[in-house]
Design a binder for these strands. Structure first.
Lengths: 348, 348
DNA sequence: ATTAGCACTCACTAAAGGGGACTGCTAAGG
DNA sequence: CCTTAGCAGTCCCCTTTAGTGAGTGCTAAT
């Protein structure tokens, strides 16, 4: 049990790499024979068996039972991902597709939706995109529109391009010109200002002059506040492609899958993982139980933060079976994060 | 094979009803013994067996094998739904919940989303809501906002409350006052008019005076047209709660489920079913193969049209296993359709 | 008409028995 | 010393067999 610093020979590493590749492809324990054939090293199965025994001592592979081939362990995957992986760069076609569908002219919400569905479409896995935290909330323009029966449609343009609208109920009917006046007043006084300050000033003014119009404006600001802070501050996220996990699932796992989907709905655990990525500020790969969640035992999570103006704004990633094509998925997540950040950036 | 008009006795009907109820509850073939116990008719199992033999002759029940209990056939379900069902009316609590979450102040899209998630939450089934077709598209107000670098944020208010926004690229920069002028012009001339007419008039004017400003307006109108016609005319729908179907699935059906989810993604088949409901203008219940789709063999689809201003605008419904709680699901679909229609209506 | 009784069917489970795919180990060969 | 052929051993997996029990259909009695 003395931890002899047994170096892993070049050859053993290569065999491990081939083994993991095979296992990811077929999902079946890899036998010494097939490995000897596939490795291109002109070795006999017996030699491969010896190497496998070494790798097993190092807990990098294991066999389901004595007369089966070898399967990578969690540590095996980890070593594979950390040291053995040769990342494939993306097709320019694929980059084009990503770029095209992450059109910076979209509003934030559709942009995130696109990112999520792109991720799940290209990787054929489930994807998750955390809503960006809202660093600044600047009022750009307000519009009031009278609807019938004491209701006013409020349209707010925030941060130069996000448009929010909602209907608010007022205590009396307002004429179009009254509303126009109120909007002009707000736009003149508050355009370009931070939303919090606007609210504070409005509250202050309201205490002075108990005027109805101001009350309406305040409601509008509250609305903007709710839309832009409560929600994304509430750390929400969106998912896509959960059903892709059905395609991959091993036979008996319908129970696992159900638990997994429940976990998705409860959000808490997933959020915790995303948070970790947010903290470390770099791509994170959780393999199997590394995530710390039982439901994710047979799944890996790959997350990457996306930055806007050099500031980490949020996290996106994918969830798939441990035996996923890491060398392909990793660059996809990476590039998507970069392109999403860029798309969000271009709008300033 | 002569179709003797064999009447189904009162007693047989009652037994069938109890049998279907049991089977829906437990998913297990119902034996003569349990049926005799549950029916509350003080009959011996042997008598029940005789009745079952009759019902089997009428193809209303069948047994998986000779020494198993009875299971309703498709026709059995059909008869149950058509003649035996005692619809439960909804709790006032549930109606309150529905009404509260179908807030008419929401915009159309969120309203439909709410309807969909409500349906799937309450029934614990998968839900589908067809987007309403757009009968009239009336321009209410236009707003142009200059962004940097030849981009203009266009905000359109349509049909009194729908707000659409998009960024359009222009061939030169416009000053805020230019844009204000253009908006004023459009609002003065076109507010309250049908979108098609607006477009035609714009096109006509453009031929006269090849002015850039008009070109921008036309782009705006095209945008509105795209948002409001292409999409809902394109007969799209939204779903929710697909994962609920996982909870219900019988053991071996992971394959079936996968096919089903694929069918959801392909949309065509589902759309066809919704269309049928649209045509008949009333609630439709497809049980198992009645839908005509193999993937839906073990599923039932319950759809109901929703009307706005007396006009059928769209269809919503649920998809669940054939052995669903019809007496509960049917009124939920019915009420949701009515309330959705009402919510969409209140906004005129 | 209803019911008790009985023979019969058939899914389900457990146990038993190959067959086969691998491995670990040993001993021989480079 | 590393590699490899050979061989014994393991254990999954599939099939067969047997036993059990739930439930039916039929018949004859009430």
């Amino acid at each position: 049990m003395v931890a002899h610093t047994k170096e892993i020979s070049e050859r053993a590493q290569h065999l491990l790499k081939v083994l993991v590749g095979r296992y990811i492809r077929d999902g079946q324990p890899v036998s010494s024979r097939t490995l000897a054939r596939d490795a291109g090293l002109d070795l006999s199965p017996a030699t491969v068996r010896n190497v496998m025994a070494d790798l097993e001592d190092l807990h990098l592979v294991t066999s389901p039972h004595v007369s089966a081939g070898r399967v990578p362990t969690l540590q095996g995957y980890r070593f594979f991902v950390d040291s053995l992986l040769t990342i494939q760069s993306l097709d320019s076609d694929e980059i084009q597709l990503l770029r095209a569908r992450l059109d910076p002219d979209k509003n934030t919400h559709s942009l995130l939706e696109s990112a999520s569905s792109l991720l799940s479409e290209i990787t054929q896995l489930a994807s998750v995109v955390m809503l960006p935290r809202r660093e600044q909330v600047t009022l750009r323009q307000v519009e009031f529109l009278a609807l019938s029966a004491k209701r006013v449609l409020v349209i707010l343009v925030i941060n130069e391009r996000e448009v929010q609208n909602r209907i608010i109920h007022t205590d009396r009917d307002y004429s179009p010109s009254e509303l126009q006046q109120a909007a002009n007043y707000m736009n003149a006084l508050f355009a370009g200002q931070d939303l919090f300050q606007v609210r504070e000033r409005l509250v202050a003014e309201m205490n002075d002059t108990r005027e109805n119009m101001n009350r309406m404006m305040l409601v509008a600001v509250e609305m903007a506040d709710k839309a832009f802070n409560a929600e994304p501050q509430g750390d929400d996220y969106m998912m896509a492609g959960q059903t892709n996990l059905l395609n991959i699932a091993e036979q008996p796992s319908i129970k696992t899958l159900r638990q997994l989907f429940e976990a998705f709905n409860q959000k808490r655990d997933i959020l915790h993982l995303l948070d970790q990525c947010l903290k470390t500020q770099e791509m994170q790969i959780f393999i199997g139980t590394e995530s710390g969640y039982d439901v994710l035992k047979d799944f890996s999570v790959i997350t990457s933060p996306y930055a806007v103006d050099g500031q980490i704004a949020g996290v996106l990633g994918v969830i798939g079976p441990t035996r996923m094509l890491y060398e392909r998925v990793i660059p996809i997540v990476d590039v998507t994060a970069k392109l999403l950040g860029a798309a969000l950036e271009q709008r300033h």
